[in-house]
């Protein structure tokens, strides 16, 4: 069953089509990879799905409900939450307080929220940093904090925007394990990633975007052996 259906989404900035007629659907419990060269419109698509931009055309159906034009907070309350490519910690709050903000989406009790936040910090292995100020964390831990905070809102679909960007191989490996752990708990994920090896390992299906359009969609093996994908990434001569 598809939890998220994207129907012919287009987003124009003036005359520029950042997304045009993109359609695909994400199956419940699966990991959908979203790849494409810089400027392909991956983050714009995330912004449309999560309510930061209203799409110019097309429909977004989440859990059978039409999401177009809903504000980001409503999108989150309905069960879709994102992380940010350029991390957005709440720098002057402690790590656990950051995650509590997410948890408070579903509860008004600080005690419940704190317990839930500590639980999520354990999931991302950041519980030893609970009392630290979020602004002082190194990049690897800030990325994990983003994931913990998003998980604390108890989503049905998690959208991860380049959580491995800027990480060293050991840190990336940790994040890959984390994403697979989250999948094992039954949560659906959509992942933007540049690291092809990583995206191949975690994705059930991959959508490739170039210049705002969907180039192809399929299982990882099929995608990487597709000559059009290779030429989009490496240029015509390599195809």
């Amino acid at each position: 069953m598809a939890i998220l259906e994207i129907h012919k989404i287009s987003k124009f900035f003036g005359g520029l089509a950042a997304n045009s007629d993109v359609s695909f659907s994400v199956e419940q419990g699966a990991i959908m990879g979203l790849i494409g060269p810089n400027g392909a419109g991956k983050t714009t698509l995330f912004n449309c799905i999560t309510g930061y931009y209203p799409p110019s055309r097309g429909d977004i159906l989440f859990d059978g409900q039409r999401m177009n034009g809903l504000e980001p907070d409503k999108v989150c309350m309905l069960g879709m939450v994102r992380t940010w490519q350029k991390v957005r910690p709440l720098p002057k709050l402690s790590v656990v307080d950051n995650v509590m903000v997410g948890a408070l989406a579903r509860t008004s009790s600080l005690k419940t929220a704190r317990a839930l936040a500590m639980e999520q910090l354990k999931v991302v292995r950041l519980e030893h940093r609970a009392g630290f100020l979020a602004g002082g964390l190194p990049i690897g831990e800030r990325k994990k904090l983003e994931v913990a905070r998003a998980l604390a809102t108890q989503p049905k679909l998690l959208l991860l925007d380049e959580v491995m960007g800027g990480l060293n191989p050991a840190e990336s490996e940790e994040i890959i394990q984390l994403i697979l752990d989250i999948k094992a708990r039954g949560l659906t994920q959509m992942v933007i990633e540049h690291d092809m090896k990583a995206i191949m390992r975690i994705s059930d299906r991959i959508v490739v975007l170039t210049s705002g359009e969907k180039l192809m969609e399929g299982p990882p093996q099929e995608v990487v052996s597709n000559p059009e994908v290779i030429s989009a990434y490496l240029g015509e001569s390599h195809a």
Partner: peptide, 11 residues
């Protein structure tokens, strides 16, 4: 601290 992040967390 961060309006966009807050918005995405259901606020």
């Amino acid at each position: 601290e961060d309006q966009d992040a807050a918005h995405s967390l259901g606020i």
